[in-house]
């Protein structure tokens, strides 16, 4: 598969959960409490896309399939897209777009602060994801984009912190994230470090 068809496939797959949400929203398939559905599903997909983004480098190394690198930006941008939707639904349903309430929530609830910080860390990555910015920032681009690591850790913390009675789901995500991050600590020959 060429890199353009591959990216098209990945794009369609990435946007499917969003289309699912829109369809459910139009058919009252979100149930009596859409806030919970939209919050839950957008947050879940943000983290899943984040983990898939982190999977690209190891996959390339294991399969030597370098074309897969061309998908990384799409995956990362979709992760940010779902994270922004997550934040927007929180702002809409929970604090009715009142900045003072956001501040209040950030101070009182560390799990919200962790999630919000993860989103903040992803913001510059989304802005500088283009080729032009990559050229402009040169070596610093790579450094900057290492912010995805703390963002991932904070996202897992955000999830673990709010698990109430059953931690299975958040544990699965956290273990996967830990494996993907640990892989990056293994020294690799001929590599100056990857993302």
């Amino acid at each position: 598969m060429g890199s353009v068809p591959l990216r098209s496939v990945v794009f369609v797959l990435c946007i499917t959960p969003f289309i699912g949400l829109v369809i459910d929203g139009l058919n009252s398939g979100l149930g009596p409490d859409p806030a919970e559905q939209v919050m839950g599903r957008s947050g879940q997909w943000a983290l899943r896309m984040l983990l898939l983004t982190l999977l690209v480098s190891p996959l390339r190394q294991w399969t030597a399939w370098s074309m897969i690198l061309s998908c990384r930006r799409i995956l990362g941008l979709f992760s940010f897209f779902y994270a922004s939707m997550h934040l927007a639904s929180f702002s809409h349903f929970y604090i009715a777009w009142q900045p003072s309430l956001l501040l209040d929530e950030l101070i009182r609830r560390p799990y919200i602060a962790a999630g919000f910080t993860a989103w903040l860390l992803m913001l510059p990555l989304a802005i500088t994801s283009s080729k032009a910015w990559q050229r402009r920032l040169r070596r610093n681009w790579r450094k900057l984009h290492r912010l995805i690591y703390p963002a991932t850790l904070l996202a897992c913390l955000h999830l673990l912190w709010q698990a109430r009675s059953d931690i299975s789901e958040s544990l699965v995500y956290t273990v996967l994230a830990a494996l993907l991050l640990a892989w990056r600590l293994i020294p690799k020959k001929g590599s100056k470090g990857t993302l």
């Binding site: 929203g25 409490d33 859409p34 609830r109």
Partner: peptide, 23 residues
């Protein structure tokens, strides 16, 4: 009395909807 997870000042009266959260 605040709860560590959720603010208890408001509630969503169900059924709530996307554009009318019923807060």
């Amino acid at each position: 009395v605040d709860h560590p997870r959720w603010s208890q000042k408001f509630e969503r009266r169900l059924p709530s909807s996307l554009f009318r959260p019923n807060r």
